[in-house]
Design a protein around this nucleic acid. Structure first.
Lengths: 120, 120
DNA sequence: GGTAGAACCTACCAAAAGGTAAGTGCGAGG
DNA sequence: CCTCGCACTTACCTTTTGGTAGGTTCTACC
């Protein structure tokens, strides 16, 4: 299988950022090390379980580092690694594309999923 | 909700290319209009159901156009729209990132999911 | 003492996504 | 006539993903 060598590399990237919240987390981490509860607050709407899960995956991929301050009550923060920053850089154009076409995409999504009883 | 305005736009992009095979499909369509069975062959490993499904979604998002030659037996091809091409452009950096870090990512994936009985 | 908050973990569930297998209409080739 | 390939569709099943609800350990605060 995979007779064609490399395909497009997007599969690789998506295996790293392919979670419902990963892009958002990465986005919010650009401002520097952030504590768990702070990330949770900033992202908003994510459950703790999932946030931890995705954070762990990103750490496992060397995109983030976890810094445990060894205190009690617990103080832990997460930050982008240099590797993670290269990823964030590569993400920027897609990010901008998304922002530029947000309306169009949103509109199209609605049209297709919504009312079939439109212009009868 | 979504007190913070725009987040990073990645959520938008991912809502368009967020399918297991969409990036690959897009990649293979850069060469110009391609017939359904040809795409299937090139992508390899995808089931017809899923391919059609993703193709339809991409068409619905105006990323692709479907051209039915109105023949029998059926002849249909798919091609990128101008809009689709802007997306593909935005995808390039991520694509390259993936290629450059393919080995590292693949390696890390293995380490984390595999044998815990490592270097005893 | 009771409560709140930190950063988690655990079990259980529901929804979504993907995959398999079969069937459709039809013409060309054996 | 039987089969193959085209571009699909449909029903069903499995895997993955995300979400909910609870618990844990410990300190600071009232």
């Amino acid at each position: 299988m995979d007779g064609q060598k490399t395909q497009c590399g997007l599969d690789v990237s998506l295996s790293v950022i392919g979670g419902k919240w990963k892009p958002l987390v990465l986005y919010h981490l650009r401002d520097g090390p952030t504590r768990f509860s702070e990330i949770k607050r900033r992202v908003g709407g994510i459950s703790e379980k999932v946030l931890i899960q995705q954070l762990r995956e990103l750490v496992a991929m060397n995109v983030l580092v976890r810094h445990d301050h060894q205190q009690v009550p617990p103080v832990v923060d997460y930050a982008l690694t240099p590797f993670g920053e290269t990823l964030v850089q590569a993400l920027v154009p897609l990010c901008e594309w998304g922002n530029q076409n947000r309306a169009q995409v949103a509109g199209t999504l609605q049209r297709s999923s919504k009312v079939a009883g439109g212009p009868s």
